[in-house]
Amino acid sequence: MNYTIRKPEASELQTIAQFQIDMAWETENLKLDTETVNKGVKHVFDHPQIGNYWVAEADNEVIACLLTVYEWSDWRNGNVLWIHSLYVKESYRKKGVFKSMYTYLKEMVEKSDEFRGIRLYVEKTNLNAQQVYEAIGMTKEHYELYEWLK
């Protein structure tokens, strides 16, 4: 199936926010505050220097989204795109939706003088996602992720 990959319209903000709420519940059994998520998604729309949302569309319906944010790499003298907030509607999983989105971004990076690569992180227990990432040619690297969150 062919998917259209594009930046979302402002009218699709609620769809993206709901995808984030659904993802948090599904992957971490975490109930997010709807108002906070709506404001967070809108903030990205209002401040594209932070990053960009991308959506996949099929049959005039948004079926997936992801957020790309920038990491400056002094080693590479350019930005690395980090994929965050990836969500694919359950009925479209295992149908190449993320592969289409990733291919779109990879081609954008390859043509760009600004971007140097693509990274993402994945929950250690999310083996299905890890298999997808490896199947499309991403590699598990030697870095571990540490964080402190308020």
Rank of each mutant, 00 (worst) to 15 (best):
E9H: 15
Y143W: 14
Q14K: 10
I16L: 11
T4M: 13
D113R: 09
R119A: 12
Y104W: 13
N128Y: 10
H142E: 15
S85T: 08
E107C: 06
E71M: 07
D46F: 07
Q131A: 10
V37T: 08
L105Y: 11
M108K: 12
A58Q: 15
L127E: 15
I5R: 05
A10R: 15
G117H: 07
N29A: 09
K42P: 00
T103K: 09
I118A: 03
D33I: 08
E144R: 11
L13F: 05
S85V: 05
W75G: 02
L30H: 14
V37K: 03
D33H: 08
M138L: 09
Q131C: 06
T68W: 08
Y143Q: 10
I83P: 01
H142F: 13
S112C: 06
Y133M: 03
N60Y: 13
W25A: 00
G40F: 13
E114M: 08
R93V: 06
V80G: 04
D113G: 05
L86A: 09
Q20S: 09
Q18D: 12
N77C: 13
V62M: 09
T4V: 15
R119S: 11
A129M: 02
A24K: 01
S91A: 13
V41R: 03
V69Q: 09
N60K: 15
K42C: 05
I136G: 00
L13W: 08
V69Y: 07
D59P: 01
K150W: 10
N60Q: 15
F115R: 00
N60M: 04
G96C: 04
E147T: 12
D22R: 08
M101G: 00
I16H: 08
M23A: 14
A64H: 05
K140H: 13
V69T: 14
Y143T: 06
S11E: 15
R6T: 13
E90K: 10
V109I: 14
Q20V: 07
Y70K: 02
K42G: 03
K124E: 06
G117P: 05
D59S: 03
H84G: 08
Y3R: 00
F98Q: 00
V88I: 14
K95C: 01
G78T: 06
K140G: 02
F19N: 01
Y102P: 02
F19E: 06
E28R: 00
I5E: 07
Q18N: 10
N126D: 09
G51L: 10
S100R: 04
H47S: 06
T4S: 09
L145D: 03
K39S: 07
W82G: 05
Q14Y: 13
